[in-house]
């Protein structure tokens, strides 16, 4: 029995002269919840489109269940939510769902679809073109689930959802994951990836720059720092030669020392007898850390 639901091998995508995705490789195992995370313009949608077979990679190869993405058997096993899809006008929600169920060999029952997506009786009798933003998202989610898919691929699924729908959405996703379904979603919110995923694939500028559990990613990108003011232009040379001190920054009269071990840096300050005042320990917020990682990658390139 094969373990991988998705394998991406050495994939590059050029649009005219722009390289949107640059030589990425990864695989997603069955049963995983993986987040494709990155700032806007990082190539997330391009990666998702290639996994779905909507775009062809310029180089490299993508397989789903060991088949090409546009294989009929693959189509029967996947459920998809795309960004900004307007469902075909002229049909009521229940008519569209019935129609979609007929495309798949083992669809979910209408009852299950309704309970999973919290579509109301009124929603079901409303024509697609008259749905509100929130109702449209629920319908898109229901369409993704119609065929009882093994693999769910969701492109920025929570855009436009309010907090409570968002919360319910992720609860449902975890329920589906407990049933053994594989889930891949893209997002530009680090918090969301952190809360919902077991694994984060972090993209910037078309490159896969980090791949690991939220914990690993967090420790990698979330820098702590010790900051203080100094009496005079006291030298910090002795301090900066310790390996725990990763970087020294001067900003607004304050000295900021980036480190992953704030306790040790504090001890060092006293040990080296540095006349520091107003000492603070700070933790970069997730979003700052996220920006740092994205910026850091830009500098490195």
């Amino acid at each position: 029995m094969m373990k991988e639901a998705v394998t991406v091998s050495n994939v590059t995508k050029h649009f005219q002269r722009k390289t949107a995705v640059n030589n990425i490789s990864f695989s997603i195992e069955k049963g995983e919840i993986a987040a494709i995370l990155g700032p806007n313009g990082a190539g997330k949608t391009t990666v998702v489109s290639m996994i779905l077979g909507l775009l062809k990679p310029s180089e490299g190869e993508i397989k789903l269940f060991n088949r090409v993405p546009d294989d009929q058997q693959v189509r029967e096993k996947i459920g998809v939510m795309l960004q900004e899809v307007s469902v075909m006008p002229g049909l009521k929600v229940d008519e569209i769902l019935e129609l979609f169920r007929s495309y798949y060999p083992n669809p979910l029952s209408m009852k299950e679809l309704v309970s999973l997506t919290a579509l109301t009786k009124e929603d079901l009798k409303t024509r697609a073109e008259k749905l509100s933003g929130g109702q449209k998202r629920r319908l898109s989610f229901a369409l993704a689930l119609a065929g009882n898919p093994e693999l769910l691929i969701l492109d920025e699924p929570t855009v436009g959802m309010d907090t409570s729908s968002r919360h319910r959405f992720w609860q449902t996703i975890h329920g589906l994951s407990d049933q053994g379904k594989t889930i891949i979603f893209s997002t530009h919110y680090l918090q969301e990836a952190d809360d919902a995923a077991q694994r984060i694939l972090f993209f910037t500028e078309g490159q896969l720059v980090a791949d690991g559990s939220p914990m690993q990613i967090r420790s990698r990108i979330q820098k702590q720092s010790v900051s203080f003011t100094l009496h005079s232009s006291e030298s910090l040379e002795r301090l900066s030669c310790h390996p725990e001190v990763e970087r020294v920054i001067h900003e607004h009269e304050r000295t900021i020392i980036q480190t992953s071990n704030t306790d040790k840096v504090l001890a060092l300050i006293f040990q080296e007898n540095i006349h520091a005042r107003d000492i603070r320990i700070e933790q970069a917020t997730l979003d700052e850390a996220f920006r740092q990682l994205a910026d850091g990658n830009r500098e490195a390139m």
Binding site: L52, G53, L54, D70, Q72, R75, E76, I78, V80, L82, Q83, E84, V85, S86, V87, M88, P89, F100, Y103, Y104, L143, G147
Partner: peptide
């Protein structure tokens, strides 16, 4: 035109409907 510009044409290609 509507189905293509609103993403529906791409979406329907992702279903098993030939």
């Amino acid at each position: 035109v509507q189905e293509r510009s609103q993403g529906w044409a791409a979406f329907i290609r992702l279903t098993p409907l030939p």
